[in-house]
Design a protein around this nucleic acid. Structure first.
Length: 471
RNA sequence: GGCGCCUUGGCGGAGUGGUUACGCAGAGGUCUGCAAAACCUUUUACACCGGUUCAAUUCCGGUAGGCGCCUCCA
């Protein structure tokens, strides 16, 4: 299994080898749960899910952790708006519980395997304790300083300790935008320093924290969450850290700084893997451009969430995908034909035994090889599609298609393996139509065809008999 | 201003120094009781300008256009 590593010291595709010798440990930056996830967010999680699937199929043990960022400016603001009557802590809990629930529902709908993930909340008492502990230690060693509004990480101190700030992106003074310098509203010593902890402002939820005699009751900064959760649940260094390209800087850079300041080993994770954005009509999604879609929009326009998954898998995670409704339509049509293939396993008229299963092994091998090559899912998908297309003339092998579909599901998550048979009543209708056709009773056979169509079934009349498919 | 990426046929999107990716859509045909599905054919793609090469869509340089990060946004 190979994967591209964003770290500057690599910038190439590397062979995966578990750091601890037996289990590949993955940490994925999860959602900030203040609103519905949009399809861009979701594509990042399809990437993380697919990566884990490919790694597991390549024979490694895998441990996969994802966080919920359930405390930050946006969650707090929204919780105050939505639940003004509640205490800040209760309001935050209500809001984030709601969106965690919705997020999990979205994950399941797009075919991501929740069971394979360990979720951790930033506000989990264990996380909070860990963050305070880490901040305290960073402060003791001079990597953090206390300001009026919170605690900051000192990049200067980090550099003076001989560490590199800029492991993912070269960080220089002249590549810091004017906007950032001018908008710098915090009490920090230099531009790139970032908040580890923020003191409570009126109406905000807060956790008690005393550091060096100062009452810092407040809440954690964003970056510290991931440093602590990844280490608590995976250890350090772990194997793969995933996220969208926008998190490369500053989020992941800052995580690395926090996580390695106190360590001899300068490595937080062996590999950082980042997925590119999906664009909508050629542009980054934004509310002002009105090209901001959620999974609910996809469903309401009549598309299957798994068609969205397929759409994402049709392009490489490191290239930008252009999402258009037309392209989703194409994915939906393709999904339908894949399903028609999977549904053939129930049908005698589609059975060809060995003759049909001859290409199975090679095709599967090709899919796994492609997935193992820096997650080349478009290539893997091509092998799958070609197999399915071939089956439309060559039929399937009832014995061997099920185990094949099982592996295909484990890789793509398209849920082709567990598709149910049609009902006896529907089968009777098909048989009745055949009967009518044999007596050339076209009126009756056409009526029955319409009836089947109303039930969502199409029938194609092949030499070996009628083969149904779901419309 | 700094850094990086991209530009492929109607749409989406792989890939390669010389051979049709693939999917979706359109057109024609075969098949069919009619359909559907399938199959066949089809619109002969690789932004532009140079260079390297026997040969470039594929390598190098430049031009144009687009995108992203540098603002706690996947």
């Amino acid at each position: 299994m190979k994967l591209y590593n964003t770290l500057l010291k690599s910038k190439k595709i590397e062979e995966l080898t578990p750091v601890d010798g037996h289990t590949l440990r993955i940490y994925s930056c999860g959602p900030t749960v203040y609103d519905h996830a949009h399809i861009g967010n979701l594509s990042a999680y399809v990437f993380a899910d697919t990566l884990r699937r490919a790694i597991a199929l390549s024979g490694f043990n895998v441990q996969h952790v994802m966080n919920y960022t359930d405390v930050d400016d946006k969650t707090i603001r929204r919780s105050r708006e939505e639940f003004p009557e509640d205490a800040p802590e209760a309001a935050l809990k209500k809001l984030t519980d709601r969106y965690i629930h919705i997020f999990n529902g979205d994950m399941v709908r797009i075919g991501n395997d929740l069971q394979a993930l360990t979720f951790v909340r930033a506000t989990d008492p264990k996380t909070i304790w860990g963050m305070k502990d880490l901040i305290t230690k960073l402060h003791e060693k001079g990597f953090a300083y206390i300001a009026d509004d919170g605690v900051y990480f000192s990049i200067d101190a980090y550099k003076k300790a001989g560490k590199t700030y800029g492991q993912l992106l070269e960080v220089k003074a002249d590549n810091t935008s004017e906007a950032r310098i001018q908008n710098d509203e915090y009490d920090k010593e230099s531009v790139h320093d970032f908040a580890l902890w923020k003191k409570q402002k009126p109406g905000e939820p807060a956790w008690e924290f005393e550091l060096d005699g100062h009452d810092l009751t407040g809440r954690p900064g964003w970056h510290i969450e991931c440093s602590v959760m990844s280490r608590q649940h995976l250890g350090q260094p772990f194997d793969i850290h995933t996220g969208g390209v926008d998190l490369i800087f500053p989020h992941h850079e800052n995580e690395i700084a926090q996580s390695t300041a106190l360590e001899d080993n300068p490595v937080m994770a062996a590999i950082f893997a980042h997925n590119e954005f999906i664009l909508v009509d050629g542009k980054k999604m934004s509310k002002s451009l009105k090209n901001f879609y959620t999974l609910e929009d996809v469903v309401q326009k009549g598309y299957d969430p798994l068609a969205f998954r397929l759409k994402i898998l049709q392009s490489h995670y490191r290239s930008q995908v252009n999402f258009t409704w037309e392209s989703l339509e194409a994915a939906q049509n393709l999904l339908q034909s894949l399903r028609a293939w999977a549904d053939m396993k129930h049908q005698k008229a589609a059975q060809r035994g060995e003759a049909a299963s001859a290409p199975y092994a090679d095709a599967l091998k090709e899919m796994l090889a492609a997935a193992g090559d820096d997650l080349n899912m478009p290539k893997a998908l091509r092998a799958l599609v070609e197999l399915a297309n071939k089956a439309e003339t060559d039929g399937v092998d009832q014995e061997k298609i099920q185990p094949l579909l099982n592996v295909i599901d484990r890789l793509f998550g398209l849920q082709l393996a567990e598709r149910p048979d049609i009902t006896h009543a529907q089968k009777d209708l098909i048989a009745e139509r055949e009967q009518a056709r044999s007596t050339k009773d076209w009126t009756k056979s056409d009526e029955l065809r319409d009836k089947l169509k109303a039930a969502g079934l199409g029938v194609r009349d092949t030499a070996s008999g009628p083969v149904w498919y779901r419309i």
